[in-house]
C-alpha cells in the first residue's frame, strides 16, 4: 500500500526528530496515532526498534493511557454519555446493552470494523438524557430495549 508507506515515512521522520529527547516514547505514540488513527502492532514494532526499547514497554504505555487505540476506530463511533444527568437516567444500562449487542467491551472495536463503543462525559444535551451519539447523529431518552433496532439500522 503506497498510502501506508507514506505514513511510515512520516512516522520515521517524527521518530528521527524526537528520539534523542528524554521520554520520547509518549510524544512519538501521540504522533503515530494522529498519522495512523491508532497504534497498531506494526507501528509499535517500528517505534520499539527505532528507540531501542522493547515492544513490551511500548505496549505497556499504549495500554496504560485510554487515549491510545490499538486498532483503527470503526466506521461508526457509538458514544454513550456517562455525565451526571445521563447516568442518573440510566445510561450505564444503555452502555451495557450496547456492549452485549456489539459483543465488545467499552473502548473496543468490532472485528468487522463497523463499530467502536466508547463512553463519554457530558455532551451538553442533558434535557434528552440518557443520550448517545452514533457519529454525528444524536439519540435521546434512550432505553436499553431500543438499542438492537438502532444498531440494526447501521448494520444495513
Amino acid at each position: 500500500m503506497p498510502d501506508n508507506k507514506e505514513k511510515f515515512e512520516q512516522l520515521n521522520q517524527v521518530i528521527e526528530e524526537l528520539k534523542d529527547q528524554p521520554g520520547a516514547l509518549m510524544p512519538i505514540l501521540q504522533h503515530a496515532q494522529s498519522i495512523f488513527g491508532c497504534v497498531s502492532l506494526d507501528v509499535q514494532k517500528v517505534i520499539a526498534d527505532s528507540l531501542g526499547v522493547t515492544l513490551s514497554e511500548v505496549y505497556g504505555v499504549a495500554t496504560f493511557y485510554s487515549q491510545f487505540k490499538l486498532k483503527p476506530s470503526g466506521k461508526y463511533i457509538v458514544s454513550v454519555c456517562l455525565g451526571t444527568a445521563c447516568y442518573v437516567k440510566g445510561s450505564q444500562k444503555v452502555l451495557e446493552k450496547l456492549s452485549e449487542e456489539l459483543k465488545i467491551p467499552v473502548g473496543d472495536t468490532t472485528d468487522d470494523g463497523l463499530f467502536t463503543l466508547s463512553a463519554t462525559r457530558c455532551l451538553g444535551a442533558c434535557g434528552l438524557a440518557p443520550v448517545m451519539t452514533v457519529n454525528d447523529e444524536v439519540y435521546g431518552r434512550l432505553t436499553p430495549d431500543q438499542i438492537p433496532a438502532i444498531i440494526a439500522k447501521y448494520r444495513g
Binding site: 509499535q44 526499547v53 515492544l55 513490551s56 514497554e57 511500548v58 505497556g60 495500554t63
Partner: peptide, 20 residues
C-alpha cells in the same frame, strides 16, 4: 535485556503480560 513481559493496562486491570 530480553524484556518480553511488562506491566499492561492500569488500575484494577493492571497485569504483567507479554505484549499484544
Amino acid at each position: 535485556n530480553v524484556g518480553v513481559i511488562g506491566p499492561v493496562r492500569r488500575g484494577f486491570n493492571s497485569a504483567i503480560e507479554s505484549p499484544w
